[in-house]
Amino acid sequence: MTSALDLLTDLIRFRTIGGGEGAAARHCAAIIEKAGVGTQLLGWADGREQLVARTPGDGPPLTFTGHLDTVPVDAEDWSADPWGAERDGDRIVGRGTSDMKSGVAAALIAVVNHASRPHACRGVQLVLTAGEETGCTGLLGLDDGARSAIAGGGPLVVAEPTGNELVLGHKGAHWMRLRATGRSAHGSAPELGDNAVVRLARAGVALHEFDGWPTDERFGRVTANVGMFSGGVATNVVPAAAELMLDIRTVPGVDPDELRTQVGALAGDKVSVADHVLLAPVDTGADDPFVGLVRSALADAGLDDTPQAPARYFTDASVLAGLLGAGAAVPTVVLGPGETAQCHVVDEWCLASRVEQAVEVYGALLARWCG
């Protein structure tokens, strides 16, 4: 039988940078189908199908989710093959090990183990997505027919990296596209033009240096990152247009309209501001009964069950929690074996022992869910 570490090795070797998730989803489907779990591939884009697997059950299922895509990688910067899944003691090195193919592998194998055990199953669902790294575009891109394949009503476990610690929420994301316009001229006579790059660069610096973003006691401060910048057509031409992509991470209570207005004020005249991605924060109360169930499962595995601070990253829960709850977010926890500090870094790694530990925790949770 396939182990979580075997599956993790396989998944790392699928190069799922902005594409190819469909092949990884089919590989996962073949494994989980052997346990008698029904599967369905949800079309979104060519080669980027997403997987829904669900056991029979009497009520709304407990859903586990994880994404199959990864951020880009420059292999020349790495000391190991980013897709080699090389072992270094307890470490497994490769792009996507922590973020978040380790969580996908642990959740899938835990569901396989659970489905293979004769019992009266209450219902369990696994949703593996594409395009999470680009703003949950895989889930957002599903049509109504595909969305109807995802059974709602039950709670959600997001297997994103927390080092197997319990996290009850995460920040949202408000990505904005800023565009500046100017007037072109010959590069030898810049005074005859209107340099859009300079205008937008000043806006970028102002946004970077601004320290008046809202703050939440639990979630911390709203942050803003100038993630991409482009402009100009040639060295010897005054640029008439420039574009900047701004990544703002939000906290509960922040109004998107007010935030957009603040960005516009900082950017200044002749700079347009438009939404690119808008994802809500996720927050579940510590007193929620499902949180109590997860804490009991952690205790069963001998792990600390203390809720940690909300995560600074966003997850597919920004979309999926509301989809499962038909608009009202279902109870959601973030709990996965990856290392938060290893997300998007060179020589990314996760610990094999944490992956096996996550299988145990998820198994304990599933046993309690159906108990």
Score class of each variant (00 low, 15 high):
residue 3 S to F: 03
residue 9 T to Y: 02
residue 12 I to H: 02
residue 16 T to H: 08
residue 16 T to N: 07
residue 20 G to Q: 06
residue 20 G to C: 08
residue 22 G to V: 07
residue 26 R to D: 11
residue 27 H to Y: 09
residue 36 G to F: 05
residue 45 A to L: 12
residue 51 L to Y: 11
residue 52 V to P: 00
residue 58 D to K: 12
residue 70 T to N: 07
residue 72 P to Q: 03
residue 76 E to S: 15
residue 77 D to V: 11
residue 79 S to R: 13
residue 88 D to P: 03
residue 94 G to V: 01
residue 101 K to N: 08
residue 105 A to M: 05
residue 110 A to R: 05
residue 115 A to K: 13
residue 117 R to P: 06
residue 117 R to Y: 06
residue 119 H to C: 01
residue 121 C to N: 14
residue 121 C to T: 14
residue 136 C to Q: 13
residue 141 G to Y: 08
residue 144 D to W: 01
residue 150 I to H: 09
residue 151 A to R: 04
residue 153 G to E: 05
residue 161 P to D: 13
residue 162 T to G: 09
residue 165 E to V: 01
residue 178 L to R: 07
residue 179 R to F: 01
residue 199 R to F: 00
residue 200 L to K: 11
residue 200 L to M: 10
residue 203 A to S: 11
residue 218 R to N: 08
residue 223 T to R: 09
residue 224 A to S: 12
residue 230 S to P: 08
residue 235 T to S: 12
residue 240 A to W: 00
residue 241 A to E: 08
residue 241 A to P: 04
residue 249 R to V: 04
residue 262 Q to M: 10
residue 266 L to Y: 04
residue 271 V to E: 00
residue 285 G to D: 14
residue 288 D to N: 15
residue 300 D to G: 04
residue 301 A to F: 00
residue 302 G to A: 08
residue 302 G to E: 07
residue 309 A to V: 09
residue 320 L to H: 04
residue 329 A to N: 07
residue 332 T to Q: 10
residue 339 E to N: 07
residue 347 D to Y: 02
residue 350 C to Q: 13
residue 363 G to W: 00
